[in-house]
Simulated assay, not measured.
Amino acid sequence: MFLAWNEIQKNKLRFVLIIGVLMLVAYLVFFLSGLANGLASLNREAVDKWEASAVVLTEESDKSLVASSLTIDEAEAVEADETAVLGQINAIARNDDQKANVSIFGIREDEFIMPEVTEGKAFSGENEVIASDTLKEDGFALGDVVELSSTEEKLEIVGFTEDARFNAAPVLYGDLATFQRVKFGEAAEANEDQINGLVLRTDDVSAATDKDELEAIEVETFIENLPGYTAQSLTLNFMIYFLFVISSVIVAIFLYVLTVQKISMFGVMKAQGVPSGYLARSVIAQTFILALIGVAVGLALTLITGLFLPAAVPVAFDIPTMLIYGAVLVVVAIAGAVFSVLTIVKIDPLKAIGG
């Protein structure tokens, strides 16, 4: 450790360059992890708030809530500890100045998926809705009467709730009658028993229903089948994993070049009796110090950047995940130093000093 730190102090510029490269790679890894978490939250916030075990949909819906259609009678035949009916439709909501894509949920006020109101009040009358608080950033406010692209019905925002986005769209929660008027229009009375799915809390998902036309889907599977969710997550995670490889290669190249430049010095040290193991440990220790500093600076810069990002940027930093990624970056950097260690072990003292 003494030899490693002493060399870093005497050759600050070259090692600052290595730290800078590692810092930039770490910064990109941390930011991408935050972006991956943020985009995932856009899709699943409302579902996570249910704290549910499964969702029951029709078999032919291909695990898509909007494509599923069943009756309340069918839903009531499902066995679970707790159940909550759910209707869902996508629309574009407009007030006087703004518009936004929204997902409208039809629910029952006395069931467990009813959201907690953080501002205003719960829906109680005709066409009243509780809205995701992200709509406030789009210019919507309490008391707004919003028009919808798919119907002539108008909805009044009477309350706001936190963390309520589904498939990247803010959610409007209303009662089942409101949902059915929005979805079916004049035919709402004829379809008053139609819903899209049933949300369950149960210990045994497989025993929830035995009807061939219905399928009980675990919540994580339901989320993974949301449009674009899996592809988006895999793409960002692949980029992060590829950056781990890049980090290892960069460190390997830098340290190998430095080792080649110091072959004669290592040769003299070995001729004086300094064992290869000591020199190898010195290189590993040096790499650990450089990687630790680079990762720490990258983490700090990422968190500082997060403080200044606008709300429109979907970034959510998960500190435990970032610490794991930081540890992985340090490990792959040390792995990249293996080539330098092998070079040191193979140095012939006589040849190195020109003997």
Results as ranks from 00 to 15, higher is better:
E224Y: 08
P227T: 00
K351E: 14
E215F: 02
L86R: 01
E192I: 05
K63D: 14
I130A: 06
M114Q: 15
A333I: 06
N225R: 06
A188V: 05
F123L: 01
A291W: 00
G336P: 04
P349G: 03
G106P: 03
A335T: 07
V330M: 14
F254G: 08
E126Q: 13
A207H: 06
V268C: 11
D212P: 01
L342T: 10
A80H: 06
A168M: 14
G294N: 03
D97H: 10
N95T: 04
L155P: 05
K49F: 12
V249D: 12
N90K: 12
A122S: 13
V330T: 06
V245K: 09
M269R: 08
D163I: 08
G159C: 05
I89M: 08
R108G: 07
V331Y: 06
F31Y: 09
A296V: 14
E189I: 02
I293R: 04
Q272V: 09
A4D: 06
E116C: 01
V129F: 08
V330W: 03
A300E: 01
E51G: 11
E186L: 10
F266S: 00
A300D: 07
D163K: 11
V338R: 14
P310A: 06
D318E: 09
A311Q: 12
I223K: 07
F15R: 06
D110T: 05
A271N: 05
S124M: 10
S149D: 14
I324T: 14
